[in-house]
């Protein structure tokens, strides 16, 4: 996983109403040793700029589930995060294989994860529903053979 900072963030973690912190993380398929590092960094930044603990927790959980999904199921992808004063906007895009039946995949307990993923405590079919639960706005689009796109927006109260 690599990360790039862009936008107007210059390392100063005091935000005014027009600032945005933009982060980009590249997620490698099957790289379980760094799975969760992106979420961890996002959470640390949210804490530093004073986002409420419960909100930061929801954002980190949604991001972590998304990271795990890309690492488990896809051929790799990236996560873009924009932290604004009033919300965090997370976009995740991966490369193939895509999801044939998104509605089915959104059902709790539905999973296509192999046993070695279940042995790690994941792949129980809770990831997508949990992402939706953590988000104020959630959308997913997927094309078989191309990839899946997910967007999560969480408001900062």
């Amino acid at each position: 996983m690599t990360m790039e900072y862009g936008g107007v963030w210059n390392g100063c973690l005091e935000m005014n109403s027009r600032q945005v912190i933009q982060l980009e993380f590249f997620l490698e398929a099957g790289d379980f040793s760094t799975a969760g590092e992106a979420s961890s960094q996002i959470k640390r930044i949210l804490q530093q700029i004073g986002v409420k603990a419960e909100t930061a927790r929801r954002i980190a959980i949604g991001a972590y589930e998304a990271e795990m999904n890309v690492i488990i199921h896809s051929l790799g992808g990236k996560m873009r995060v924009a932290i604004l004063p009033d919300r965090t906007d997370i976009s995740v895009e991966d490369n193939g294989p895509g999801i044939a039946d998104v509605k089915l995949a959104m059902q709790e307990g539905y999973s296509t994860a192999p046993d070695h993923i279940r042995d790690m405590g994941f792949g129980a079919g809770m990831g997508l529903p949990n992402m939706a639960r953590c988000s104020d706005e959630f959308s997913i689009t997927s094309e078989v053979g191309v990839g899946t796109k997910i967007r999560m927006v969480i408001h900062h109260p």
Partner: peptide, 14 residues
């Protein structure tokens, strides 16, 4: 479970 994901889970879940 004793893998690294347990620590990650504890971290993101506070």
């Amino acid at each position: 479970l004793t893998n690294i994901q347990v620590v990650r889970t504890a971290e993101v879940g506070d």
